[in-house]
């Protein structure tokens, strides 16, 4: 097991290098545009000389590789530059927004698992009956609604019409308030949850149906084991294994999807930060966003891989990776 983890970590390195390279290439592509944006944001009148001077100051006229190495060095020591917009340290700003996003991600994943696992299993066990059809239709509709539409609809219904919930929430420590607004998390979580539940329910249903058709289930039935035991002690474990893989992929999506949802609900996380940065062309911040999200995604996948190997005894005892 330890060798497996070590091998995986080693494989990470080229990928991480590739990620950082790509992120940096982004900034490089922006080129003069970035500097123009910077100067404009600072309210400086833009002439070619000033641009060139600024470029020289920022070291942007160096060759690509030099810039990349410098930036990478800064990255490794935690220095990601300063924001073009606020002038503050990118790393500090970025990390201050992370907790909000983590909270939202965690809440969504929790809600998703709690709803989609029972629904998916129910749908599979009652295959082709009314319950199954109802769940499938709902999942389908949920899959076909863009998340920003869902967000707006939820706002319309719950915040505007019914006035049950506030539209805008302030999560952690923003504008003086240090309390976490639990009420404010409901709508964004619901938005993210609807899309995820729809997708997961279908997947879980398919997996359970698949498993129920396998020979070992026939064997258990022929031995007189009750359906409930078959379901919960045998099939569910396979579902869990599959769930782990799904979750890893989804967390990646979530971290990206939260950009839209966070913006709509003004949830002060890194997603909203990213969108704002992109709109204002705050390139160092954009870079930081891309790098951090990719690293997080890669780490999540690694953890999922490890979990998967630990859960499936065939793989574990078989010695090698499946």
């Amino acid at each position: 097991m330890a060798t497996f983890i070590a091998k995986r970590l080693l494989q990470l390195i080229p990928i991480l290098l590739g990620i950082t390279l790509l992120s940096f290439a982004l900034m490089y592509l922006a080129g003069g545009d970035a500097v123009t944006a910077l100067l404009e944001n600072q309210g400086v009148a833009v002439t070619q000389e000033i641009i060139d001077a600024k470029r020289h100051e920022l070291g942007l006229d160096q060759p690509f590789v030099v810039q990349y190495v410098r930036w990478l060095g800064g990255l490794l020591s935690g220095n990601m530059g300063t924001s073009y917009v606020s002038g503050k340290d990118v790393f500090a700003t970025f990390s201050s927004k992370l907790p909000a996003t983590f909270l939202l991600t965690f809440a969504s994943v929790l809600v998703t698992i709690l709803i989609s696992v029972p629904l998916g299993i129910l749908s599979a066990v009652r295959q082709n009956r009314f319950v199954d059809y109802a769940i499938r239709v709902l999942s389908f509709v949920g899959n076909s609604l863009p998340n920003f539409f869902v967000a707006l609809l939820l706002i319309l219904v719950f915040a505007v019409t019914l006035r049950w919930l506030p539209v805008v929430s302030s999560p952690i420590g923003s504008s003086g308030s240090t309390s976490i607004s639990l009420v404010g998390i409901v709508l964004p979580t619901a938005t993210l949850g609807i899309a995820m539940v729809s997708k997961y329910t279908r997947q879980i249903r398919a997996t359970v149906l698949d498993e129920l058709n396998k020979p070992y289930v026939a064997g258990a039935r022929a031995r007189g084991v009750s359906e409930r035991v078959i379901l919960f002690r045998h099939v569910l474990k396979s579902v869990m294994i599959m769930l782990v893989t799904l979750l890893a992929l989804s967390i990646g999506d979530l971290l990206g999807g939260t950009a839209i949802v966070e913006s709509i609900f003004m949830w002060d996380g890194v997603g909203k930060l990213a969108v704002d940065s992109i709109t204002m062309r705050d390139y160092p911040m954009i870079q930081a966003y891309v790098v951090w999200m990719a690293i997080a995604y890669v780490i999540v996948n690694l953890v999922a891989d490890i979990l998967y190997h630990w859960l499936d005894p065939r793989v574990r005892l078989g010695g090698d990776e499946a």
Partner: peptide
């Protein structure tokens, strides 16, 4: 394949946002 791994490492919309923003 390693290149595609790198691209896969980026959660979808994030990178698209960034590229679209830059372009």
């Amino acid at each position: 394949m390693r290149t595609s791994d790198v691209f896969l490492a980026f959660p979808g919309l994030v990178f698209a946002l960034a590229i679209a923003g830059v372009l």
